[in-house]
Design a protein around this nucleic acid. Structure first.
Lengths: 202, 202
DNA sequence: GTCTATACCCGGATAGAC
DNA sequence: GTCTATCCGGGTATAGAC
């Protein structure tokens, strides 16, 4: 006990390196599968060494997603679920297919209650929904357009079809974590709103 | 020819039994992982026997999803992507979490171009989008409401938040298969439409 | 507190017998 | 066409070195 440091001070540094390696691995490995050994090699360790810091592969991937969230939050606006920041994040995601795949992958696996990321995703969706809803409520009475999309936004049938399908798939993801959600009802409402938009804007 | 050759019709009977077993396994397993051995046991075979008919686990799961699609098509309306049928299917999905998880799971994995389900999902989204877009276009000039949701459809901030998040996640799924999709632009348009709806209906 | 070495188990894949 | 046997790779648990 020579130089006393915080209980997690030193480990967090190594954890950070491992997480960075995992991020890099997923970013590069466009389509190949990433094993714990792959990540370990990048930091010059064995797989057991890596697992020592995270306990399991799933826990490691969960930590990676948390780190990615934190990085996004730091990069684009402090208020994580600000609508403008959300669009910026999506735009940024479009440059990292590997990480998007990682997200979708873990999100699917996290449907299991025992999965280490289960709580993380539940919380993530919960707070995101809350923040977005609050933001929307705030902007309802605004006269100014809060989110100004630079390019022209096309509102046509093809766009509506993409949105309808996307909402269906995405709602399934949320529903797996929160079974109270009424997917069909939500989609029916969306359908009505989209039809109105198509009728008015064309 | 009345007796088709090739790997599709010869063993189709056994394949069918295996697919049914896989469907049952995923439906029951709720969210636990299903191995090829699990499925094989249900049909009184070994895993090697099952693999002989499909080549790989991934190919088997792809076949399961195709069968599920076909079954849904048969059960709810002939025109697969009819909007009403789509809602019915979603409602039905809400009773089978295991199968929903299977879908999301394979959809994520199918982002890889080498995955056996890659083409399947590309085609599925492509035709779905086409059909839905056509259906929407047809209904724009209709005076009657084409899809009548029985329960009241709530249009509020919480609903809009769920939709916004769902569309984000779902668009990522489509984008992984079709990188030409501009996620941010689509979402910006959705944001505008949702804001309009909230302003008008509240 | 960190890491290596090792051994274990499970699951998917493959070869060859029947 | 299906089984048995086997292989292999990946994740995991443990012991012990530093």
């Amino acid at each position: 006990m020579s130089t006393p440091r915080g209980p997690y001070a030193k480990t967090s540094l190594k954890r950070q390196k491992i997480i960075e390696a995992a991020l890099a691995a997923y970013a590069e490995a466009g389509s190949r599968k990433v094993s714990v050994r792959d990540i370990a090699q990048r930091v010059g360790m064995t797989d057991a060494g890596v697992l020592h810091h995270f306990g399991s592969r799933e826990a490691l991937l969960t930590a990676v997603l948390e780190a990615r969230d934190a990085a996004a939050r730091a990069a684009f606006g402090e208020t994580r679920d600000d609508l403008r920041a959300g669009l910026d994040i999506v735009t940024h995601n479009a440059s990292t297919p590997g990480l998007v795949k990682l997200f979708v992958d873990v999100a699917a696996a996290a449907a299991e209650p025992e999965h280490p990321a289960h709580g993380f995703f539940q919380d993530r969706y919960d707070t995101s929904r809350r923040n977005i809803a609050g933001q929307l409520a705030r902007h309802i009475d605004d006269s100014e357009e809060p989110v100004t999309p630079e390019p022209v936004t096309p509102v046509d049938q093809e766009w509506a079809a993409r949105i309808l399908l996307a909402a269906t798939d995405g709602l399934q993801l949320q529903w797996l974590l929160e079974p109270d959600i009424d997917m069909a009802q939500d989609l029916a409402a969306l359908y009505g709103v989209l039809m109105d938009a198509l009728r008015n804007r064309t």
